[in-house]
Simulated assay, not measured.
Amino acid sequence: MSIPEYPILSVSSVEAVYNGAIAALHGVDLLVGRGEIVALLGSNGAGKTTLLRAVSNLLPAERGAITAGRITFGGEDVSRASPSHLVRSGLVQFLEGRHCFRSLTVEENLFTGALGRSSSRTGVKADLDRV
């Protein structure tokens, strides 16, 4: 794995459990550089959703917890940030296959999701144009 020059997201030696006993992640490492696109692949039960919940600080809502390691987004420890703060900072999780707004295009869905951030419509449009 090549190391991005300036990682926007860093996952280092993360371990996680559910209900205080069910091990879900063991020593996961991941670096994502600014502007990179990364795919997370694996079989059912491999920990993909758990990792995304950990990165979004949504594990506590599922009775899960990070027991070791560290996750930072933009240099900020996600375990100390509320999920809503992370969304406003640009860390947004969306689930494939849920078809929340089936009639909207991909761009319209992204725009709708971005409105939760405290950006103006112009700022959101600029972000979408960069993507």
Rank of each mutant, 00 (worst) to 15 (best):
residue 105 T to A: 05
residue 20 G to Y: 15
residue 131 V to M: 07
residue 89 S to N: 08
residue 90 G to C: 04
residue 80 R to W: 02
residue 34 R to F: 05
residue 54 A to H: 06
residue 46 A to P: 01
residue 92 V to G: 04
residue 125 K to D: 05
residue 121 R to F: 03
residue 100 C to P: 02
residue 14 V to K: 10
residue 131 V to T: 11
residue 74 G to V: 07
residue 115 L to F: 04
residue 19 N to W: 15
residue 81 A to F: 03
residue 43 S to E: 13
residue 71 I to C: 11
residue 68 A to H: 13
residue 109 N to T: 01
residue 8 I to N: 11
residue 120 S to K: 01
residue 93 Q to S: 02
residue 124 V to S: 00
residue 103 S to V: 04
residue 43 S to M: 11
residue 92 V to Y: 00
residue 120 S to W: 01
residue 75 G to C: 13
residue 111 F to N: 05
residue 78 V to G: 01
residue 100 C to R: 07
residue 98 R to W: 05
residue 79 S to W: 00
residue 51 L to T: 00
residue 102 R to D: 03
residue 22 I to Y: 14
residue 12 S to L: 15
residue 60 P to W: 10
residue 33 G to A: 10
residue 109 N to C: 04
residue 64 G to Y: 04
residue 34 R to E: 15
residue 30 L to M: 14
residue 56 S to H: 11
residue 118 S to I: 00
residue 101 F to R: 09
residue 28 V to C: 12
residue 130 R to N: 05
residue 78 V to R: 07
residue 5 E to P: 15
residue 69 G to I: 13
residue 57 N to Q: 11
residue 27 G to T: 10
residue 114 A to Q: 01
residue 33 G to R: 14
residue 110 L to R: 04
residue 98 R to A: 01
residue 20 G to S: 14
residue 106 V to F: 00
residue 48 K to L: 12
residue 8 I to V: 14
residue 120 S to Y: 02
residue 64 G to I: 08
residue 106 V to Y: 03
residue 73 F to I: 12
residue 67 T to N: 09
residue 1 M to E: 12
residue 72 T to V: 07
residue 25 L to D: 11
residue 115 L to K: 07
residue 32 V to N: 13
residue 88 R to T: 01
residue 69 G to K: 08
residue 100 C to Q: 10
residue 122 T to P: 01
residue 84 S to C: 03
residue 86 L to K: 05
residue 128 L to H: 06
residue 49 T to M: 11
residue 120 S to V: 04
residue 71 I to E: 06
residue 27 G to I: 07
residue 71 I to D: 07
residue 82 S to M: 03
residue 128 L to D: 13
residue 75 G to Y: 08
residue 99 H to E: 11
residue 75 G to F: 14
residue 115 L to H: 06
residue 114 A to W: 00
residue 122 T to I: 00
residue 88 R to G: 11
residue 84 S to H: 13
residue 21 A to I: 13
residue 113 G to I: 05
residue 15 E to V: 08
residue 126 A to P: 02
residue 77 D to A: 02
residue 130 R to K: 06
residue 78 V to W: 05
residue 20 G to Q: 10
residue 118 S to K: 09
residue 94 F to V: 05
residue 49 T to H: 08
residue 114 A to G: 05
residue 36 E to G: 07
residue 9 L to P: 14
residue 96 E to R: 00
residue 62 E to I: 01
residue 119 S to W: 10
residue 105 T to Y: 08
